[in-house]
Computed example of a mutant assay.
Amino acid sequence: MDFMAEMAELALASRLRRLSDLYWQGVTATYRQSGVDFDVRWATIFVLIARQGPVAVMEIADRLGITHPAVIQVINELEKHGLIVSAKSEQDGRKRLLSLSQTGQDMLPKLQPLWDAFITVNQQMLARQTHNMLISLQEMEAQLAERTFFDRIQDQLNINKSLQLAMSNIAIVPYSPEYQSDFKRLNIEWIETYFRVEQHDLEQLDHPEIYILPNKGQIFFAKADNQIIGCVAMVNTGTTDRGDSSFELAKMAVSPDARGKGVGKLLCLAAIDYARQLGVKTVWLESNRVLTPALTMYASVGFREVPRVPTPYARADIRMEINL
């Protein structure tokens, strides 16, 4: 099991670094096998100088979006290996303009066939992807250019503090017959907003003691100021094809004026903890792709999309699971 993959969003930067390392290992081995004395770290700056030179250090940093010290480090290595030369700018004597040396120009015909192969292999792999990585990288870079990762983290930490204050008076309580009407009200409210109420909905909402609570099934409610503002059900669904015990997380609903405050996540975590205490191995759910906030929340606690199976719900177009 790939633990870094299990960490999902938490390990995004580390996975990008690992992917980069895999690329660099292959490229370095190719250079070595081809008898080309060239470091993979030099490539982007070397290509920019070859295509745009003479070019100044700051211009390289700006064009590539990397730091000035990082550019200087590579330039020093390129100069040490005799691949580039520098000269003072005639317009500004403080500027160093960089261009390929004769040795660097002689290196280009040796590098180009290898780079052509790199491009073709990348194109082949990108063509097999569901989502083009280059487009995803461009979108991520654009977002970070608009607002830095640090600033986004600070915003989220402030939001989390506000949510903690808002949730400090929320209690998670188990099912009691007095809450059955709230259970039905909250679910009918959101279902009718997006879809239509189906027969299996009414069975569970009208008769939870028959369709949800048997065999250690449970319904959890979020209660604030003596008001029920959210609910989620845990339905014992027996064993999976793998022989593991399983529960369905169902009938998640949050009152409209309580949404966006972490109530759904609080309920979801309580339900997962309940399943874990029972020794349940798999918790699954069905939803619809139009419910983006809910799907994002499920993913944030560890649910991952899995192949769909026959379902009593016409609206269900995605199935997710979490292994405990």
Rank of each mutant, 00 (worst) to 15 (best):
I119R: 09
T120D: 09
T120Q: 13
T120G: 05
T120M: 11
V121T: 13
V121R: 14
N122P: 03
Q123H: 12
A127D: 15
R128I: 06
R128N: 09
Q129A: 14
Q129K: 15
Q129C: 12
M133P: 11
L134T: 14
Q138P: 02
Q138M: 10
Q138H: 08
E139L: 10
M140K: 10
E141V: 07
E141W: 08
Q143M: 10
Q143H: 08
A145M: 08
A145H: 09
R147I: 10
T148E: 02
F150L: 13
R152Y: 01
Q154A: 09
Q156A: 13
Q156M: 14
Q156S: 14
Q156N: 14
Q156K: 15
N158Q: 15
I159S: 07
I159A: 09
I159Y: 05
N160L: 11
K161P: 06
K161G: 12
S162W: 06
S162L: 14
Q164C: 10
L165C: 06
L165D: 12
A166V: 04
S168V: 01
N169K: 14
N169W: 03
I172L: 04
V173L: 09
V173N: 03
P174K: 07
Y175C: 04
Y175I: 01
Y175P: 02
S176P: 00
P177E: 05
P177V: 02
Y179R: 08
Q180P: 00
D182F: 07
D182M: 07
F183T: 01
F183W: 01
K184Y: 03
R185N: 07
R185M: 11
R185C: 04
L186S: 02
N187F: 00
N187Y: 00
I188T: 06
I188H: 05
E189M: 13
E189S: 13
I191V: 15
E192I: 05
E192G: 06
T193A: 14
T193W: 03
V197R: 03
V197G: 07
E198R: 00
L202E: 11
E203Y: 03
E203F: 01
Q204V: 01
L205D: 01
H207S: 08
P208D: 02
E209V: 01
E209K: 00
Y211W: 12
I212C: 00
L213S: 05
L213P: 07
P214Q: 04
N215Y: 12
N215F: 13
N215I: 05
K216I: 01
G217F: 06
G217Q: 04
